[in-house]
Amino acid sequence: MAEYVRNGVRIDDTFAEAFGMRATRLLVTADHPRWAHAAAASACGFATSVIGCGCEAGVEAELDPAATPDGRPGVALLLFAVSREALAEQVERRVGQCLLTCPTTAVYAGIEGEDRIPLGRRLRYFGDGHQRSKVVDGRRLWRIPVMEGEFLIEDDTAAVRAIGGGNLLILARTRESALLAAESAVAAARAGRGAILPFPGGVVRSGSKVGARRYPKLGASTNDAFCPSLRGSTDSALEPQVGCVLELVFDALTEADMQGAMRAALAAICARGGAGGVLRVSAGNYGGKLGKYHFHLRDILPEQDP
């Protein structure tokens, strides 16, 4: 495998294999940023992987009051699911349980598109006949009376084609060095728009392989080739100096967004450099057979050593 080296970090000439998903963006505003964040934390909770959570979700950005539809502080959320139907179901559940319930929030569609999924269209029935529709600036909004006042929610949002499963593997000497590199990478990736890293803190330690050797019914199991403690037991992909591997997983709205987020993350990892304990960066794929999108690391390399 050809290699590139940046700031003492070897970068595999491989690619992250990613899949098509459906996504939407919601803008959640509130009287105060802390209520917007509280709502967002609930709505994006337990949304790390479509495998067990139904969707992958995260806060895309914090919004300046001047940039929100109602002039209040807010956050932008991105939600990704495997299909339009799954996305619609997750949106309805999460908005109904986490945003309708949260004081002062309002929810707007944050993305344009032909393919519409309901946002407030069914939730409005919570109003028991007292809900009112308003068309403001071309958007149909529902005003649902709640004990605190009114919950304002747009009628529908767009389900757009998006990409899930972008990833980077950080191979470092120690857990500490791997974590520090991962944290700076997540911070760099999250500074941009159009992508989220859905796992806790943006980082996943339980990288997986397809299926299991021991348990045939299992869909996925631990990525033994990258587990340092199994170097003696399996065909390891790790050189002896590697003491810890962490994975960053990305979901993005477009290929450009995905590349942008991965590029920012890779740059931050490389900035830690060999001196920071980072040995190598790789990416997970299935030989290119399963995913439609291939994000080659060579395409997102930092220009030269920083």
Binding site: D70, G71, A106, V136, G149, F151, L152
Partner: peptide, 10 residues
């Protein structure tokens, strides 16, 4: 409190 008035104001 009616949030939609804030939306209307914008």
């Amino acid at each position: 409190e009616f949030v939609w008035l804030a939306r209307l104001d914008r």
